[in-house]
Design a protein around this nucleic acid. Structure first.
Length: 295
RNA sequence: GCACAGGUGGUAGAGCGGUCAAAUACAAGAGACUGUAAAUCUCUCGCCCAUGUGGCUACGCAGGUUCGAAUCCUGCCCUGUGCA
């Protein structure tokens, strides 16, 4: 029924499951190009810490949405949706297969759905003012101006409340979300049992530290990326910058970072778990069979 | 050996006669997600029945005082510091 929609492949799963390499293999076989769906790989200079694929690892397969923003500015899900949709049509237009690959569930949804985000840009002045207010205060404001949204929102999450108020002030109320997808997407998931995932995360972190991860963070700071911004970027950038600032010892940094990456992987799992359309595969062979059938 | 200080849940650490299964933080587990999403936020967290103003076992060990003790007393066993 959705056969008229452009066909695309989505490779997803938590961190450290080998998605990037997997996607390159598939792209090679099916004539695809890859669109990264990673909220941190969009930034220039965040390489080792984000596990960004190297030129060499790309093996000639074109990659999109890497290094499209400066780490100093905030790149949003909306920016992502716009660029990703554009990349998809460009690739499909060439007769090639678009392959979205990444672990940022929200970005994948934003790219696939017709209109999942309200067309209201951030209002920094308003945000600044609202940031000072408590969550319960924000909630009561929202309840007055957009009671409908207030019913479903997380009443204790200031971030979300501020955004909802921002939308309501701009266009009256949050639009109903249109979950209809704009593409005929085959979603393929990669995962491991938690114990294995944990081990992989640890090994990968150690490797990256050997390869100069701390240097990367140091260098970014020298180039003007503030520690405050690094806190917001999270994980490697947050914890290594804490080490550089002397807040954590090297050992504490490694332990906490490893734990946090694992927690993050579990949060990714929580997100993906509720999507029943994902085909979880054990290996590339299973994925190839699925794709052949799909195309 | 004498003198202090202290031994509390996975850890750190409150509590110092009742309202304590025990603050808080961390760890752990589960979950949410409408432009910060690697962010942000929520819930659970002694055991058991799992409905509850439910049952059971708990605050180093053994006794005691008391209507009632993690909280007071005695002895013992540990630990830290001071003096020898």
């Amino acid at each position: 029924m959705s056969t008229k929609l452009p066909k695309i492949i989505v490779i997803l799963g938590p961190t450290a499951t080998g998605k990037s390499d997997f996607a390159v293999d598939l792209a090679k076989q099916f004539g695809g190009e890859i669109i990264s769906a990673d909220s941190r790989q969009v930034y220039k200079g965040l390489d080792l810490g984000t596990g960004k694929i190297t030129k060499r690892e790309m093996r000639g397969v074109p990659h999109h949405l890497l290094d499209v923003a400066s780490a100093n500015r905030v790149f949003t899900a909306s920016d992502y949706a716009r660029l990703a949709k554009h990349a998809i049509s460009k690739i499909a237009g060439k007769g090639k297969l678009p392959i979205i690959c990444g672990g940022t569930g929200f970005y994948i949804v934003a790219a696939l759905e017709r209109q999942s985000l309200a067309p209201v840009p951030p209002n920094t002045a308003l945000r600044k003012k609202l940031t000072k207010k408590s969550a319960s205060k924000l909630f009561s404001i929202l309840k007055k101006i957009d009671p409908e949204r207030a019913r479903t929102i997380d009443a204790k999450n200031s971030h979300r409340l501020i955004r909802a108020i921002e939308i309501a002030k701009a266009i009256g109320k949050s639009p109903a979300r249109n979950r209809e997808e704009e593409y005929d997407a085959l979603k393929i998931g990669l995962n491991f049992p938690l114990e294995t995932l944990k081990r992989r995360i640890d090994l990968r972190l150690k490797k990256r530290l050997r390869l100069g991860l701390i240097k990367e963070v140091e260098h970014l700071h020298e180039k003007g990326l503030s520690f405050k911004r690094m806190e917001a970027l999270g994980l490697e950038y947050r914890y290594i910058s804490r080490f550089l600032r002397g807040i954590l010892t090297r050992k504490q940094m490694e332990e906490e970072l490893s734990r946090e990456i694992f927690k993050f992987a579990k949060r990714q799992n929580t997100w993906f778990k509720k999507d029943n359309s994902i085909h979880w595969v054990k290996n590339i062979k299973e994925a190839k069979i699925l794709i052949k059938k799909f195309l």
